[in-house]
Computed example of a mutant assay.
Amino acid sequence: MNNCFFLFVCLFVSVFHIFTFLMRHFVFFIAEGTEVYFLKEGERISLTCSKCTQENYDGLYLYHRFLDHRYHKEKEVLFFNSRFPKPSVRSDFTHKVDWNGSFSNLSITIRNLSANNEGVYRCVYHSQGKKDTSCQTYILHVKEGTEVYFLMEGEDISLTCSQCTQENYDGLYLYQRFLDHRYDKENEVLFFGSRFSKPSVRDDFIDIDVGNGSFSNLSITIRNLSANNEGLYSCVYRSYGKMDTCQTYILHVKEQKNDTIKTPEPERCHVSQNLMTAVILVCLFFSVVIAFILLFPRVKQRVKKENHTEENGPMNPQSSTEYVYEDMRKNPVYSRVGPVQRPQA
C-alpha cells in the first residue's frame, strides 16, 4: 500500500508539471463562433445562416471543405441570390438538402449524413465590390453508424430498424453476416413487406421476437443469445432500383463459464514492474541531486582548508611559539628592572 501511495504521488507531480508545460507552450483552440457537432451516419443536422451585420448583401453562399483537406478549395453547397425568392442547391446535394426561411435568416437541413458530408461548413454573405463576410461556421464529425455490443450467452438484445430517408420503400430486410466470414453471403434474418401487417422471421432464427412497431420503425429482440448469433446485423430498406442501409449492429457473444465461486480478495494495487522500477529510479536520481546540492558546500569548504594547510608547510622552528617561550625564560622580563638584591647573611 505504501508503494502504491508513493507511486501515485510521483505520477501526480509528473502529470501536473507536464500539464503546466503544455499550457504554457501550446494553445488549443477553435475559432470563436464555431459550432462543433458529433453525428452518426444516417442522422440529420440543421444549420442556420443569418446576417451578422447590417450591410446590404447580394448573395449568400454555403461552402463545404473536408477536414482532411482532400480538396484545398471549398465546395459550394448552396447559393441564395437576394433578388430571388429561393436558393439553389448544387447537384451533389440536391437529394440531401432542405431549406426554410429567408435570405437574412435561412435554415438548411442536411439529411441522411454520410462520411462525405463531414467537414467545415461556412455561411458567407457576399456583396459586389466589398469583402465577403463569414457569419457562421460549423464543423461536422460524422461517425459510422455502427453500434457494438459485448454480450454473454443466454442474454437478450433489442435492435431497432428505422427509415433514415423519406423514400417510399417496398421492403425491410434484416441481414446477418458472421464476423469470421465463414459465409461470404449475408443471411436473411427477417423480412417486412410494406404492404403486410407484420414481418416474417426465417426458420433458422426461432428465438427472435418482433415487438410493437411499424414498417418505418421496428424493434427486433433476439433472445437466449449463443455463439451462432454473433456477427454483423444490417437493417436494409429496399425499393425498386434503390437500397439504403440505415442501421448496423455488431454483436460479440462470449461463452458463459461456470467458474467456482471464490471468496473475494481484498483489493490490491497492481502496478507494472517496469513502471515501478522507472518511478523508483527517477526518485532516486532526484534524491542524489538534492543530497549533492546540500553536501557540496561543506565538502568544498573542508577541501579548501586542507589545501591551505598543505601550502603553508611545517612551521619554522625560529617562528615556533615554543622557542619564543624559551627565549623569554633565558631573558626574563624582570632582568630589565635591575639586579636582584639578595639579603645579607
Rank of each mutant, 00 (worst) to 15 (best):
K86V: 09
S91M: 06
D132V: 04
Y149C: 10
I110N: 00
F150W: 05
E153I: 09
P87Y: 04
T137C: 00
T94D: 07
I139H: 08
G129T: 04
V142M: 02
G101I: 02
A115D: 11
P85M: 05
V142H: 05
K143Q: 13
N105M: 01
S88D: 13
F150G: 02
I110K: 00
Q128A: 09
F103G: 02
M152I: 12
G101Q: 04
K130G: 02
S114P: 04
E144I: 12
L140I: 04
H95G: 02
D132K: 15
C123K: 04
V89I: 15
S127R: 15
N105L: 08
F150C: 05
Y121F: 14
G145M: 07
T133P: 00
S134H: 03
C123M: 04
G119T: 00
A115M: 12
Y149I: 11
L106P: 02
C135F: 13
M152N: 15
K131N: 14
P85F: 05
T146W: 08
E153H: 07
T133V: 15
L106N: 03
T109N: 03
S91W: 05
N100W: 05
V97K: 08
S127C: 04
H126P: 01
Y149F: 15
L151T: 09
R122F: 04
N116W: 07
K96E: 10
Y121W: 06
S104V: 00
S82L: 06
T109P: 01
T94N: 07
K143N: 12
G145P: 07
S114N: 12
F84G: 00
K86Y: 13
S114F: 02
H141R: 03
T94L: 13
I108H: 07
G129V: 03
Y138W: 06
F93D: 04
N117D: 15
S88I: 14
V97D: 08
S127N: 10
R111D: 13
K143F: 14
T133M: 07
T133N: 14
I108R: 03
H126A: 08
T133I: 15
I108N: 01
L113I: 07
E144R: 15
G145T: 06
K131W: 12
H141S: 06
K131H: 14
E118D: 05
S127Y: 05
Y125N: 06
L106W: 03
E147F: 11
K143R: 12
P85A: 10
S114K: 14
T137I: 12
Y121H: 02
P85V: 06
L140V: 07
T109C: 01
F84S: 12
F84H: 09
L151C: 12
K86E: 14
S107Y: 01
T94E: 14
F93S: 02
G129D: 03
N117I: 00
T146A: 13
N105Y: 12
I110C: 00
R122A: 13
N116F: 10
K86T: 09
K143C: 02
R111A: 09
E153W: 06
D92V: 09
L113D: 04
D98L: 06
L106I: 01
K96A: 08
S114H: 09
S88F: 14
T94S: 09
F84V: 05
M152A: 14
H126N: 11
A115T: 10
Y149N: 09
I108A: 02
Y125I: 11
D98Y: 05
K130A: 12
T94F: 10
